[in-house]
Design a protein around this nucleic acid. Structure first.
Lengths: 209, 209
DNA sequence: TTCGTCATGTAAGAAGTTACATGATTTC
DNA sequence: GAAATCATGTAACTTCTTACATGACGAA
């Protein structure tokens, strides 16, 4: 069933339309930056902060991507930037334009492929864990579970903030936060379930009935 | 042969073990290849197939990584390779060695960081979805849910195979498969829950008093 | 004064993907 | 005899991360 590796090579809609000189081609990181400006982030620095507090669970971004993106968005007319130094320290603050909001909405509506890309060496190790002694495999499984449990603590700590945002009319940040919580809760549950089963009858006691 | 030695001029960036001729430096993709050979994959081609059928949910690999890894593992003595052409078509088949099994187990035991790296533009869009009209946001949410539901169908189709592997004494492939199923089930549930709330609560299309 | 935070940027490189190249074998 | 699959590989490219550079401001 899985043998047929879906060839994504022909469908390069992921990169969007051809980046011509007329089209200011905005890539995914650019839209993230645009979206964060739209939510009220003012400087590149604040974007980095906000990403770390909100979508960190399923997206990361670095200054090296942010600052060029901001210039590109300004060129395209999606944001306006003006210098607003803090004392003698240089600083650019940005605001989203109407064209920017339109571009953001258009991107959000666009039905381009949204691959769910998970890259997890922990699960890879768990997959191969039958090569270990039973006790070692249990240790590994516990480590995976604890990793999810720790992440749950972190995510739940952000819930009050997300609730406040929801109360102001934006429920979707809370929705994606719940998604992160649900995912790690599910992983921890599967781990726990397996751990309990192993504890119950590990010595070839597999007879059902 | 050992072309990596050339760049050892800079000494101050020693964050890990130096890849020298004594240490056969094996990176993550190398261990994945080693593990798959350990599970019975014989050629680079078969490794690619097996990855696509088993750990595709949380790891991918391409031929460009596989073939160099195989040569490297053979040099390190972790696998043995011999030519076994199909007719006139060249072909190398590999087997894991005892040293290879030991290296694999050591890697599995190693308590190095196992970051859970999720990269999902779908969730990013969902996070920003308050910029859309309510109806459009619902469409996006439905798309996210359907994506998980489709993935569930694919994953459940592999369950019989994983059960067969478990019956032969290797329960961990089934465990990681269940993990994938649980993750997407949780995401679909969160979506469905939110969709129901939206339909019932605020003044959308529903006739709420 | 020194440390932590704010704020922006450059240069280099690690990692992985895609496109392309090659050609044999099996299947329809 | 055409298409799909088996099987391996090279070269170019994108993407993202790391390390480094710069320096102002505020607080201890």
């Amino acid at each position: 069933v899985l043998d047929k590796q879906v060839k994504l090579t022909d469908m390069d809609a992921a990169t969007g339309p051809v980046p011509g000189p007329d089209h200011p081609e905005v890539a995914a990181p650019g839209y993230v930056v645009l979206g964060m400006i739209g939510l009220g982030a003012r400087s590149g620095y604040e974007i980095k902060q906000l990403v770390g507090q909100s979508i960190r669970f399923f997206w990361t971004i670095s200054p090296v991507q942010i600052y060029p993106s901001l210039r590109q968005l300004a060129e395209a007319g999606f944001v306006t930037g003006r210098p607003e130094p803090r004392g003698r320290r240089p600083r650019q603050v940005y605001e989203i334009t109407e064209a920017g909001r339109a571009a953001l909405r258009q991107w959000l509506r666009r039905a381009d492929p949204m691959p769910f890309e998970l890259r997890d060496l922990g699960l890879v190790k768990l997959f191969f864990a039958d090569a270990l002694e039973p006790g070692e495999a249990r240790d590994l499984l516990r480590a995976i579970r604890e990793r999810s449990e720790e992440r749950l603590v972190t995510l739940r700590a952000v819930e009050p903030t997300a609730h406040a945002v929801e109360a102001q009319g934006d429920p979707h940040p809370l929705l994606t936060l719940r998604m992160g919580i649900a995912v790690h809760q599910a992983m921890a549950d599967v781990c726990r379930d397996f751990e309990d089963r192993q504890a119950g009858g590990p010595a070839g006691r597999g007879q059902t009935g």
